[in-house]
Lab assay of single mutants.
Amino acid sequence: MSGNGNAAATAEENSPKMRVIRVGTRKSQLARIQTDSVVATLKASYPGLQFEIIAMSTTGDKILDTALSKIGEKSLFTKELEHALEKNEVDLVVHSLKDLPTVLPPGFTIGAICKRENPHDAVVFHPKFVGKTLETLPEKSVVGTSSLRRAAQLQRKFPHLEFRSIRGNLNTRLRKLDEQQEFSAIILATAGLQRMGWHNRVGQILHPEECMYAVGQGALGVEVRAKDQDILDLVGVLHDPETLLRCIAERAFLRHLEGGCSVPVAVHTAMKDGQLYLTGGVWSLDGSDSIQETMQATIHVPAQHEDGPEDDPQLVGITARNIPRGPQLAAQNLGISLANLLLSKGAKNILDVARQLNDAH
């Protein structure tokens, strides 16, 4: 009898209710805020589980004197976190989706994509230029951005401005803007500013005609071990179906173009009346040469937790077992079709030249 009692006690200790789920994140304040929001949602869904947040620095956090596009290494903000995932030191990792490459290392998958916040870019102005827009900034004003995508589009749109690289986390960039006289304004992701509670610093939100956004911008991705079915089931509740389908289309477009950090590629997606609209573009580094096109596809946005595919093969690095396969494939095909259209119009040449120029500098 006593033996059975011990077995029952052991089973209770090993039951999922007692389990601590370890969540990996970057150390920056924004990353911690984003991770806290994901953990809060998981806690609400699984009140019996405990969650421990483990923060670590990544290569991208450490190399702050070089433009991201020049470092010449993929997975700048993800490699150390993936290493911890691989060694079973954490069970899942919360990322900004735009930091996750469209091809993940073997053994990993994006197990959830959370509801997207505003994906557009924002302009934050130096205190002396508050009330201005990019259009009304004085001639030769210097605007800071760490992104080739932003610089290429904005140089084309605002030729009277000069664009220079600015690195560091959000706090560091804002301090550089406010305390030094080098920059009249800087460009940042609206979602990051909003998550930090800095709505009052948003001086201008850039519309798609001015600057399309990065693939996955404004959404959070939760990376897990691809074979860890328990954790895949656990994080599945975080999937937002519309965000998922938009981001599958965007990531398929980028992957098929073979774009990345070192080339200016941008997108804009919208879901309306059962249609998914995808606009994508590529630019030369100075913005003088560009190709942009829009395509659409009829896609039914499923309700969360309709029964999805059981075999769960990944699409552009994403596993969404609780979302039907048909809409996911339709979104992926839309991204591939748009990429093929741009490639047929000469996108590869623009991107190759951009890559060579970026590598040469």
Rank of each mutant, 00 (worst) to 15 (best):
E135H: 04
R175S: 12
I336T: 02
G326C: 13
S337P: 02
L170R: 02
V222Q: 01
E223P: 03
I166Q: 05
A297T: 12
I110C: 08
A347H: 05
V123F: 04
W283T: 05
M271L: 13
L76S: 11
A347Y: 15
L76V: 13
A226S: 08
G203E: 03
L234R: 07
E293S: 12
L341T: 14
V235F: 01
A347V: 03
L68E: 07
I350S: 04
L357Y: 10
S184N: 12
I21G: 00
I248K: 00
G236S: 12
M212G: 14
Y46V: 14
K176E: 09
V202Y: 08
L351M: 14
S165G: 13
I54G: 05
S344W: 02
H305N: 13
Y277I: 07
K87G: 07
D233G: 07
Q29E: 07
L341E: 11
K115R: 11
K157H: 13
T78M: 04
T133K: 10
F158E: 03
S37I: 13
F163Q: 10
H83G: 10
L232D: 05
V263M: 06
E293I: 09
Q204Y: 08
K132Q: 14
P208D: 04
Q304M: 06
T66A: 13
L206C: 10
A40N: 07
V202W: 04
T319W: 01
I231L: 04
R26N: 01
V215S: 13
Y213N: 10
V143T: 05
I350K: 00
S69L: 08
Q292I: 15
R149D: 04
V316D: 10
Q296P: 07
G346Y: 00
S184I: 12
E117W: 10
V353I: 06
P127R: 13
L278S: 07
V301I: 12
R355L: 09
I187E: 03
N322Q: 10
L244C: 12
Q194C: 04
L137K: 03
V263F: 09
V103A: 07
E310F: 01
K132G: 13
I205L: 14
W283A: 03
A67V: 10
R246Y: 05
R164W: 11
A151C: 11
L97H: 01
N322I: 08
L64W: 15
K132V: 10
F129Y: 14
R26K: 00
F51W: 10
E258N: 02
V224G: 05
N358P: 15
V353R: 06
E52M: 01
H199F: 15
V38Q: 03
V130R: 14
A84N: 07
K128L: 11
M212E: 06
S96M: 05
L76R: 12
S96K: 00
L341I: 00
L148H: 04
A270M: 15
P106T: 13
I113D: 04
Q275F: 05
M295K: 12
R167F: 05
C211A: 10
E210G: 04
P241T: 07
K348F: 11
Y46W: 13
C247A: 15
E162V: 14
V267K: 08
Q194D: 10
M271T: 06
R164K: 12
A112N: 00
G287D: 06
L188F: 08
V142W: 09
P313V: 13
A191F: 03
L245K: 03
T25D: 02
D178G: 12
F51K: 05
K132N: 15
L343F: 10
S28A: 07
K132R: 11
R149H: 06
K140M: 10
A347T: 15
Y213E: 14
V263K: 15
H120S: 12
R355V: 13
A152H: 14
G236L: 04
H120C: 12
T25N: 05
A152G: 11
G197T: 04
K70F: 10
R173M: 02
E139G: 10
T298K: 10
R156M: 14
G259S: 11
Q296I: 06
Q217Y: 07
V353H: 15
D233M: 07
A84H: 08
K87E: 10
P105F: 14
T78Q: 09
Q34A: 08
H126L: 08
C211Y: 09
V224M: 15
G60E: 03
T41M: 14
E80V: 07
K128S: 08
I110Y: 04
L49S: 11
I299L: 12
K227Y: 15
V301P: 00
A270Y: 05
E139W: 14
A297Q: 05
A219K: 00
T145V: 10
K98Q: 02
E242V: 14
D233P: 06
F163T: 14
A112K: 01
E310T: 02
L238N: 00
A122I: 03
S262T: 06
L338S: 12
R321C: 07
A270T: 06
Q217H: 04
A226D: 11
N169T: 09
V124A: 11
L64C: 13
G24K: 00
Y213S: 04
L100N: 02
V301C: 07
S45Q: 14
K43C: 08
P127G: 07
M271D: 15
R225M: 13
E135K: 05
V265T: 05
M271Y: 15
K345T: 15
Q356N: 15
A303N: 15
G60Q: 08
P313G: 11
D230Q: 15
Q292C: 12
V222N: 00
E179Q: 12
T136E: 11
R150W: 04
A339P: 00
S75E: 05
E117T: 06
S165V: 09
I166R: 04
A40T: 11
D230E: 14
R22I: 14
N118V: 12
V235I: 03
G335E: 03
E162Q: 07
I71H: 08
G259A: 11
K79F: 05
V90P: 01
K27Q: 08
A55C: 08
Q217R: 02
R167G: 09
S147H: 00
E162D: 11
N88V: 06
A214I: 04
D233A: 07
I336G: 03
V263Q: 15
S141K: 08
I54D: 06
R19G: 13
E139I: 14
L174I: 12
T59Q: 13
H256T: 14
G197S: 12
H160R: 12
H239I: 09
M212R: 03
T58E: 11
R116S: 08
D286I: 15
E210S: 05
T136A: 07
H199Q: 06
G168L: 04
A84D: 08
L342Y: 13
Q217M: 01
E306A: 15
H83M: 12
T78P: 02
L244D: 00
P208G: 13
D99C: 00
Q314D: 00
A330I: 01
K176L: 12
D61F: 00
I186V: 11
Q275E: 07
Q229D: 14
Q296E: 11
Q50T: 08
S288H: 01
G131L: 08
E242M: 05
D273I: 07
E117I: 15
Q275L: 02
V39N: 08
T66N: 10
N88D: 05
G168D: 01
S75K: 15
T243F: 00
F253R: 01
N349Y: 06
A112V: 06
E73F: 06
T279K: 04
S284T: 14
T145S: 11
G281M: 01
N322Y: 08
T66F: 09
F253P: 04
I166F: 13
D230N: 11
F125Q: 15
A214K: 03
G72I: 13
V222A: 10
E162C: 15
V20K: 14
F125E: 07
L148Y: 02
H207V: 10
I54Q: 03
E306Y: 05
Q29L: 11
Q153M: 07
G221R: 01
C114Y: 04
A331L: 02
V222G: 03
D240S: 02
G168K: 04
